[in-house]
């Protein structure tokens, strides 16, 4: 499992991308999907997920739809037009970052004669 420091920096991008790909989702569903897609290497904690989701809602990147399930409330999150733009921007940024990191590690390994 990857460290929380690594996940923290990409959490916003992960959430926005999930919503872009799947339309609307609720919190628990997101954690389970990330867990399954990453073969349990990435586990989003509730402590990180909900503050970020609520912050994205406050900033207008996501909107919510409330569904009552008996005595409890379930919030389905989906992207707003602004959130779709943010998602694309964040994905581009992350892709470029991963490419740079890949090149950096490759160059370092080549310089030290490690096999890549």
């Amino acid at each position: 499992m990857y460290s929380s420091e690594l996940i923290k920096g990409t959490l916003k991008t992960i959430i926005l991308h999930l919503l872009k790909e799947n339309g609307k989702m609720y919190g628990y569903e997101m954690t389970q999907m990330v867990k399954a897609l990453s073969q349990e290497k990435i586990q989003i904690t509730e402590g990180a997920l909900y503050p970020m989701l609520h912050a994205l809602e406050a900033l207008g990147d996501v909107t919510t739809e409330t569904v009552y399930i008996g005595k409890r409330v379930r919030k389905y999150y989906s992207l707003t037009p602004q959130g779709k733009t943010t998602s694309s921007e964040k994905m581009k940024e992350l892709t470029a970052f991963l490419e740079t990191m890949g090149n950096l590690i490759k160059k370092q390994n080549n310089a030290h004669g490690y096999a890549t």
Binding site: G27, Y28, T31, Y50, H54, R72, V73, K75
Partner: peptide
């Protein structure tokens, strides 16, 4: 309140699944 509701649903889902 929003955080209470989110955590409540999350914990209920965990218990049920």
């Amino acid at each position: 309140q929003a955080l209470v509701e989110s955590l409540l649903d999350h914990l209920c889902c965990m218990v049920e699944n």
